[in-house]
Structure formats: C-alpha cells, structure tokens
Amino acid sequence: MPAYTIVTTSATEGSEAAEVSTLADEFVDTSEALGYSRRMAEEMVGMARQLMLDFDYSNVGLYEGDLLEEDLNPEHPSFIGIWVLDQDGAAFVTAEEFDAGEVEADAP
C-alpha cells in the first residue's frame, strides 16, 4: 500500500497562531487517502461551527509518500491537493488548480 501524508492547518479569525498537525499512513490508493482527508476536513468545519469560530485560514493538505520529516507546502513535488475550509464547508483544490492560482491561500 502506498503512503500518504496529511497536513491539517487551522487558525481562527483574529488569531496570530495556527495549529498544524501532520500524519502519515498507508492507503489502498489516492482515492482512499482523498476520502480520509475529506472526512478530516469536514470534521474541522463541523467543530468550528459547534464552537462558533470564524475561519481565518484552515486547510487539509494531501501529499504522496511518508513525509513526516520534510517541510511541506503546496510547492512540494509530492503535493496532490488541498481541502480549503471556510464557513460554507470544504472544497478540494488539486495541485494543478493551486499552481494555476485558482484559489486564494493565506496559509503557510
């Protein structure tokens, strides 16, 4: 099974700090990793709604490979895509769309 790394980044309106978590796991294929990261993104949106938090920037990035020891960002060659979170929910942006500037990203 191939390994994938999922990076969650969240911050709320008015906060200078961001919480970043990284995990690597094996999935059957990209589709399964994408589904798992989607559920994580939806859970983050749900928690923000329950706590009545306004998003400043929050996302769930998906990378191919076990990359826990690397500095990951959307410019990394293993970047697959990112779930961009806002008050309306989670929307997936592929690496190609991200590179083309089809999303505004404030996250590090």
Rank of each mutant, 00 (worst) to 15 (best):
A107N: 12
S58C: 08
T12G: 13
P2S: 08
A107T: 09
L51P: 05
E102I: 07
E69M: 11
R39V: 07
I80Q: 08
T5E: 02
P108T: 03
L68Q: 10
T22W: 05
A48R: 05
E96S: 10
V103N: 06
I82L: 13
A90Y: 02
S21V: 07
A17S: 14
E75M: 06
A3L: 11
S78I: 01
Q87F: 10
D25L: 12
L51R: 15
D29K: 10
D86Y: 06
Q50N: 13
D54P: 07
E96V: 06
A105C: 11
N59W: 02
L68R: 09
G14T: 04
S37G: 05
Y63M: 01
L62V: 12
D25E: 13
Q50F: 08
T30M: 14
T22R: 12
N73M: 06
E32T: 12
L53F: 10
E70Q: 15
A3S: 14
L34W: 10
A90G: 04
R39Q: 10
D56G: 08
E26K: 11
T8G: 09
Y4V: 01
D71S: 11
A24T: 08
D56A: 13
A33S: 02
H76E: 02
W83T: 00
V45Q: 00
I80E: 07
M1D: 07
E42P: 03
A18H: 08
T94K: 07
E42A: 09
F79V: 02
A91H: 12
E97Q: 15
G101F: 06
G101C: 09
R38P: 03
M1F: 11
Y36K: 05
S10G: 10
M1N: 09
A48P: 02
V28G: 09
A18V: 12
E26R: 15
A3I: 05
S15G: 10
F27L: 05
M52N: 15
V103H: 05
T94V: 07
T5Q: 02
T12V: 13
F55I: 07
D29A: 14
S58I: 04
L72M: 03
P77L: 07
R49C: 05
A24S: 15
V28F: 12
N59V: 06
L53G: 04
L68M: 11
L68N: 04
Y63I: 00
L53Q: 09
Q87V: 08
L85C: 06
G61W: 01
Q50H: 10
A33R: 00
L68E: 11
P108H: 06
E32S: 14
E75Y: 04
P77R: 02
